[in-house]
Amino acid sequence: MKGVHNFLVTVAAILALAASIASAYDPSLLFRTSASQQTKPKTAFCKNPKLVTPEDFFSSGFNIPGNTNNQLGFSANVLNVDRIPGLNTQGLSVIRLDFAPFGQVPPHTHPRASEIIVVDQGTLYIGFVTSDEDGNRLFAKILRPGDVYVFPFGLIHFQFNPNPTPAVAFTALSSQYGGFITIADALFGSNPAINPVVLAKAFQLDTKTVKQLQQKFA
């Protein structure tokens, strides 16, 4: 029972913190690009109020560990408006992150959201990098159970489990569709592929290495 109580307290705290962010600012909430269409609204349809039920504000299973048996060693259980219709227009989504030993969420950005994270189990090494005009400064820290950290809007950030034991964290985004752009996948795994010469010059690599990376991420 103590574990369930701690879990509920953790989720309640992160929802409260994220809600305060969402109420203040939620830019670009309704838009994302589509490969087959022009930029279009990305929001759920409003339900007839007479048909709304408590189930529209409910989800379960957030206490169940995710499958981390993959190359990066992490899983993300995302609760957004697709799973909880009552989140529509609330500017909020929540994610459970499970990490295998030495697993990581690679450097990425959320183009439509800031993020707040709280560690529930284990230890995480996390950080974000500022923009060029701020000197590309790294703000990194080791987090342990109960520790909370904020990733500012749109900045590249990461989470890494440095230990040989699993870790669990919960995060909240200030958007119902925060988006997720993994830097390496986007650049080396684009379709069609970016000209290797461009990436070789950008990363100060030879084109052979770039082509190998493109094959790997493709």
Rank of each mutant, 00 (worst) to 15 (best):
L97Q: 03
K47E: 11
S20E: 14
F153E: 03
D82A: 14
G86Y: 06
L87F: 13
P85Y: 08
F170A: 04
K50Q: 14
N77I: 14
N48T: 13
T209F: 10
N48M: 14
G3K: 12
T171F: 06
F62M: 14
L17Y: 01
A19M: 07
G103E: 00
K208W: 09
N67K: 11
L8R: 11
E115Y: 01
A22W: 00
P106R: 08
Q104C: 10
A184W: 06
F58K: 13
V118T: 14
S75Y: 03
F188Q: 04
Q71K: 15
F58M: 10
I117W: 04
N136T: 08
T68H: 05
R32F: 15
R112L: 09
I142M: 07
F160Y: 13
V129Y: 02
D98L: 01
S59Q: 07
T53L: 11
D120W: 00
P65S: 12
N191H: 13
K2P: 04
D147Q: 06
T89L: 13
L138D: 04
G178K: 01
G189M: 04
N136S: 10
G146E: 07
Q71D: 07
G135D: 00
V197P: 00
K141A: 11
F57E: 03
K211C: 10
H5S: 11
A202Y: 06
P41R: 08
G73A: 07
G91H: 03
H108T: 01
A44L: 12
S131R: 10
E55K: 15
A44V: 09
V150E: 02
P111K: 04
P166D: 05
T33S: 15
V168I: 15
V81S: 12
S59V: 15
T89C: 11
N77S: 15
A16F: 05
Y149K: 01
N67I: 15
G179N: 04
P192R: 09
A193H: 03
S34I: 09
S190H: 08
H5Q: 13
H108D: 00
A169E: 05
